[in-house]
Computed example of a mutant assay.
Amino acid sequence: MLALAKYANAALMFFLELGVLGSVGYWGFTLDSGWAIKLLAGLGGPALFIAVWALFGAGGGANATFPLTGLARAALEIVWFGGGALALYAAGVVTPAVVFFVLFAMNAVLRIVWKQV
């Protein structure tokens, strides 16, 4: 049963990672600007997040170009997932932003307790 919960927690992290990209893209396309700025933010924002994650955090650091561990990894995750929640908040959808951050916090605590980091 515990193994199933650990797999579910790992799957949740994957979906949260995708949620960050969707949140940042959504934020970009909800800006009060012209279409050029919306396209730049809506497509460029997720691209920037992808680049940072690929360089420093992919695969728990195992697939990253410059893998981070310890406090540096924790800071990256807080900025990454917090950025997703902040993007939702900036887009004006407060409840989903709070739910997103709470899910991230629960996921992070369980990954630490279950030594999935």
Rank of each mutant, 00 (worst) to 15 (best):
W53D: 11
G57M: 05
L68I: 06
G44N: 10
A75M: 12
W35S: 11
A54C: 09
F104A: 04
L103P: 05
G22S: 08
G45Q: 06
T65M: 10
F104C: 02
V99M: 05
F100T: 02
N63Y: 08
K38C: 08
A3S: 14
A97V: 00
T95M: 14
A105Q: 02
W53Q: 11
G57T: 08
V102L: 13
D32E: 15
F49A: 13
F81T: 06
A36G: 07
I78F: 13
V102A: 14
V109A: 15
Q116V: 10
V102T: 09
P46A: 11
V79N: 03
A54Y: 01
P96H: 10
Q116P: 07
V117G: 12
A64Q: 06
A10D: 12
A5G: 01
W35F: 07
R73A: 15
F104Y: 15
W80D: 06
Y89G: 09
L4T: 14
L43W: 11
V20S: 06
F14G: 10
I78R: 05
A72K: 14
L18R: 07
L55P: 00
N107R: 04
T65G: 08
A72N: 04
F29K: 12
G57K: 03
L88C: 04
P96G: 04
G28H: 03
D32T: 12
V109W: 13
E77S: 10
L16S: 09
W27D: 01
L43G: 14
L88R: 02
A5F: 15
P96W: 08
W27R: 01
I78Y: 08
N9P: 00
V109N: 02
L103M: 13
A75I: 15
L21C: 06
A51H: 06
E17R: 01
K6P: 01
F104N: 00
I112D: 06
L4G: 02
A54D: 02
F66K: 12
L21V: 09
G44L: 07
S23C: 10
S23W: 00
F15R: 02
W114A: 12
D32K: 11
Y89W: 15
G83E: 05
I50G: 02
Y26L: 12
A51W: 14
G34T: 08
S33C: 09
A62W: 02
G57N: 09
Y89R: 13
M1I: 11
L4K: 13
N63R: 15
V98C: 02
W114F: 14
L110M: 13
W27H: 11
V52M: 14
V52C: 03
A62G: 00
V99H: 05
L86I: 07
G83W: 09
L86Y: 12
A10Q: 11
V113D: 03
L12Y: 04
L48T: 13
W53L: 09
A97T: 04
F56P: 09
N63C: 04
L12W: 03
G45M: 07
L12T: 08
A64M: 05
G59M: 09
L43I: 15
Y89A: 15
A91H: 06
T30S: 14
A8G: 11
V102C: 09
L110W: 08
N63M: 13
